[in-house]
């Protein structure tokens, strides 16, 4: 059974957005959209999350934060860039301190368009991420199996 389809837990981080997409992400949780139908919980803790939703583009100061959060998430994990700023920098692309979209910092799997992205599109993005999770888990498993004969590969040889 594809469990990741059934129980994707999300975490949301605001890279450098205008709040528009953020409140729409939150709106997804509320009665009209109710993503808990799909088993989605907003955990708020990277260590529990499967899907990282990032709104807004990445600037100088938020870059290490985004990296840290991504690293603290256990595999398999998927990154969804919500809104046009997160996808490419959007209207703020010309700002002086931009690093660009989220993909400038961490690998992004799903791009959700919109300014602000509507709850429906955000949900669509998350649902598209679900299958990716399972695929990534399987990939990792096979990769580990392939690596298995050389367990000392992590240890630097003198």
């Amino acid at each position: 059974m594809n469990l990741f389809r059934k129980s994707p837990w999300i975490i949301h981080y605001d890279g450098a957005s205008c709040n528009g997409c953020d409140i729409e992400v939150l709106a997804c949780l509320t009665p009209r959209y109710d993503v808990e139908r799909l088993g989605i919980i907003n955990t708020g803790n990277p260590k529990h999350a499967d899907i990282l939703l990032i709104t807004g583009y990445i600037n100088e100061q938020s870059q290490p934060v985004v990296r840290t959060i991504y690293e603290q998430m256990p595999d398999p994990k998927v990154v969804v860039a919500v809104g046009i700023c997160a996808s490419s920098g959007g209207i703020f692309r010309d700002c002086y301190n931009t690093k660009g979209g989220v993909d400038s910092t961490i690998p992004v799997d799903i791009y959700v368009p919109g300014c602000a992205a509507r709850p429906e599109s955000i949900m669509d993005g998350v649902v598209q991420a679900l299958d990716l999770l399972e695929r990534k888990r399987k990939e990792k498993k096979t990769r580990r199996r392939a690596i298995a004969p050389t367990p000392t590969s992590e240890v630097p040889t003198p």
């Binding site: 059934k6 837990w9 009665p31 088993g39």
Partner: peptide, 24 residues
């Protein structure tokens, strides 16, 4: 809360999923 809510078996799905996650 005027929502539909998750499937009845959701906690079990969650539990089984957690076992499949990476250990950190």
């Amino acid at each position: 809360q005027s929502r539909i809510g998750p499937p009845l078996l959701q906690p079990i799905y969650d539990l089984l999923k957690l076992f499949q996650k990476e250990r950190i």
